[in-house]
Amino acid sequence: MPKIVDRTQRRDEVAAALWRLAFREGWNAVSLRRVAGEAGLSLGSLQHYFAGIDDLLDYSVGGVLDILDDRLLDQLTTLADPGHAESAVREVLRKMIPGAAEDSATTPLPENGWRIQVMAWLAVVNRAARNPDLSARLSAGSDRLADAIAAALHASAPRRSPGDARRDARGLLSLVEGLLLQLSRRDIDPDEAAQVITRFVALAFTP
Results as ranks from 00 to 15, higher is better:
Thr78Leu: 10
Ser139Trp: 02
Ser87Cys: 08
Leu56Trp: 00
Ala101Tyr: 08
His84Cys: 06
Leu180Phe: 08
Pro110Tyr: 04
Leu57Ala: 12
Phe23Tyr: 11
Asp54Ile: 06
Gly141Lys: 07
Ile97Lys: 02
Ser135Ala: 14
Ala120Ser: 13
Pro158Trp: 08
Asp54Pro: 01
Ser174Asp: 15
Ala100Gly: 07
Arg33Met: 13
Asp103Ala: 15
Ala123Gln: 12
Leu138Asn: 09
Thr107Asp: 10
Ser161Trp: 05
Ile188Ser: 12
Leu21Tyr: 04
Val176Tyr: 03
Arg144Asp: 08
Asp133Pro: 07
Glu25Phe: 06
Arg115His: 04
Glu192Thr: 15
Phe50Gly: 03
Arg71Thr: 14
Ala129Cys: 09
Arg130Pro: 00
Ser139Phe: 02
Glu91His: 08
Val201Tyr: 01
Leu56Phe: 05
Ala146Phe: 05
Leu179Thr: 08
Gly37His: 13
Glu86Phe: 12
Asp81Pro: 05
Ala39Pro: 06
Trp121Glu: 07
Gly171Val: 13
Val89Ser: 00
Glu91Ala: 14
Ala105Phe: 11
Leu145Asn: 02
Asp58Val: 09
Glu86Tyr: 01
His84Arg: 11
Ser156Asp: 10
Arg11Ile: 13
Leu46Phe: 01
Glu102Val: 14
Phe200Gly: 02
Pro98Ser: 03
Ala146Tyr: 12
Pro82Glu: 12
Arg130Tyr: 00
Leu203Thr: 15
Arg34Leu: 09
Pro2Cys: 05
Leu32Asp: 09
Trp19Arg: 08
Ser156Gly: 05
Gly178Pro: 11
Ala29Cys: 03
Leu175Gly: 10
Ala88Trp: 01
Pro110His: 04
Ser139Asp: 10
Val124Ser: 07
His154Glu: 11
Leu181Lys: 11
Phe23Lys: 05
Arg160Ile: 05
Val125Met: 09
Asp58Leu: 11
Asp12His: 15
Phe23Leu: 10
Asp58Glu: 13
Pro207Ile: 03
Arg24Trp: 03
Arg71Trp: 06
Asn28Val: 15
Ala120Asn: 06
Gly83Asp: 13
Ala146Met: 12
Gly37Met: 06
Ala80Tyr: 02
Ala128Val: 07
Asp69Tyr: 00
Ser45Thr: 11
Ala16Tyr: 00
Asp70Thr: 11
Pro98Trp: 01
Ala129Glu: 14
Met119Asp: 03
Tyr59His: 14
Met119Leu: 15
Gln182Met: 10
Gln9Glu: 09
Asp70Arg: 13
Arg144Thr: 07
Leu179Tyr: 01
Leu56Lys: 06
Pro158Asp: 15
Trp27Asn: 14
Tyr49Lys: 06
Arg144Ser: 14
Thr106Gln: 09
Asn126Gly: 15
Gln195Val: 06
Leu32Trp: 00
Val125Trp: 01
Arg24Ile: 03
Ile197Val: 15
Val5Met: 02
Arg7Val: 07
Val35Leu: 10
Ile97Pro: 09
Leu21Lys: 13
Asp133Val: 07
Glu102Trp: 05
Pro207Arg: 11
Val89Ala: 08
Asp70Val: 13
Gly63Glu: 08
Asn126Met: 09
Ser174Asn: 14
Ala202Lys: 04
Ser161Thr: 12
Asp74Glu: 13
Asp74Val: 14
